[in-house]
Design a binder for these strands. Structure first.
Lengths: 214, 214
DNA sequence: GATGATAGTGTTGATTTTACACTTTCCACT
DNA sequence: AGTGGAAAGTGTAAAATCAACACTATCATC
């Protein structure tokens, strides 16, 4: 017997997570290949159902840790998806999250629902299961907004020490637009979000100063 | 028998709506007095459970129309509230919406759950049922952000034709900060979001030109 | 016709944003 | 050891935007 007078329908509620990293010079998204119907064999965003004793943020964090072994720094809830027919199994409300992390920190694991988990370059990511194409697109739009508002949002994609050129290239990847080197450096250096280190990255060229999040 | 392998918990999902209007020179929020337990007799935000055949936006619109008789123009989904213990009756996920409208358009109706519905000035609004104080505060913060980003967001609070002084006073109410008259007018007039009318509001003083949304 | 109250109107300085090009430093190669 | 290639690093000027600021105009009322 329900405690509610009008006995509301009770959808399942899931957190679906757009987990992005930087690999092979591009943004890649963590996808799982579905092991069961519906959409068997198709790629989907990782996610899982909200459990009794957790709120949505905790659910997203738990799912993410199950999937990647990584405890994420910040996760960003960015939209709900609630079309009645978005899941053929029945009513599922999806709360979408965005998380950024470093591919090197991740040991991919298959899980209950996922036959396989893999990083996929964004460019070749189409025809995901359910409405996950739409969720992914919304995540990327949000990522771009956040990066423009504060490039420090992108730090979790990078190692603890990074060069400004590297940060700039990630910024350009996420926003889709090239920016002027001097203006970008000025902006970031004056933002107080980074501190210069007495260390340099050496390569075939002039060594580049390393910076760390402030 | 569930279509899901892991038989997820099934919370109720509700849309709760912060409906604001302008009354007596202040922002007021539409509240309903709870007719049943829990929180019997306390004020709460209007809202209701997601039904089988509707998505969240449709749910919010339907609830709002039931409560006010007004079909809202834009509604803004701004946050989820999902603490496991936020409703003593059981698990309820609340999706919070913000809507603006004109008090004159509204015929308040009591509804199933609501013994009474009334506009309440924000200043005197405390100790709402559930976590609705928090939801309301989040709504006001979001309103302020939206208004600053684009004062046209506030148009639904105003009649179809309004003076710039009136728009400015609403802007100041929502953002909490006074702004310079000339700067504000310049900003709004150059935004292309309003058009001047050949009509004036007459009072005890110099007539003020009326404007309409572009 | 004087008073009171709101409408209406431009300019200036400060700040922020954008555009733009050359020198430095290291490695690798010869 | 000298040269060439490649990315690192650096400053300035013009443009656009934002912020501050005070007086005149017009109506209603008395």
């Amino acid at each position: 017997m329900s405690a509610f007078c009008d006995d509301p329908p009770r959808p399942a509620v899931a957190a679906d997570i757009v987990i992005l990293c930087l690999r092979e010079g591009a943004l890649q998204v963590l996808l799982v290949r579905r092991g069961g119907d519906p959409f068997r064999g198709r790629w989907a965003l990782p996610g899982g159902f909200l459990q009794e004793d957790e709120d949505l943020d905790a659910c997203a964090r738990r799912e993410m840790e199950e999937e990647t072994g990584v405890r994420p720094g910040r996760i960003l809830q960015f939209a709900n998806f609630s079309q009645p027919d978005r899941d053929p199994r029945g009513r599922v409300i999806s709360v979408a999250y965005l998380a950024l992390l470093r591919a090197e920190d991740v040991r991919l694991k298959a899980s209950a629902d996922a036959a396989e988990a893999a990083w996929r370059p964004l460019a070749r990511t189409r025809n995901l299961a359910f409405d996950h194409d739409v969720i992914l697109a919304a995540a990327l739009a949000r990522l771009s907004d956040e990066a423009r508002a504060d490039p420090a949002f992108l730090f979790p994609l990078l190692p603890p020490a990074f060069t400004l050129s590297r940060l700039q290239s990630v910024f350009e990847l996420t926003t889709g637009r090239p920016v002027d080197k001097r203006n970008f450096r000025k902006l970031v250096e004056e933002s107080g979000r980074i501190q210069p280190l007495e260390a340099f990255e050496r390569g075939a060229h002039r060594p580049a100063r390393l910076f760390a999040p402030a």
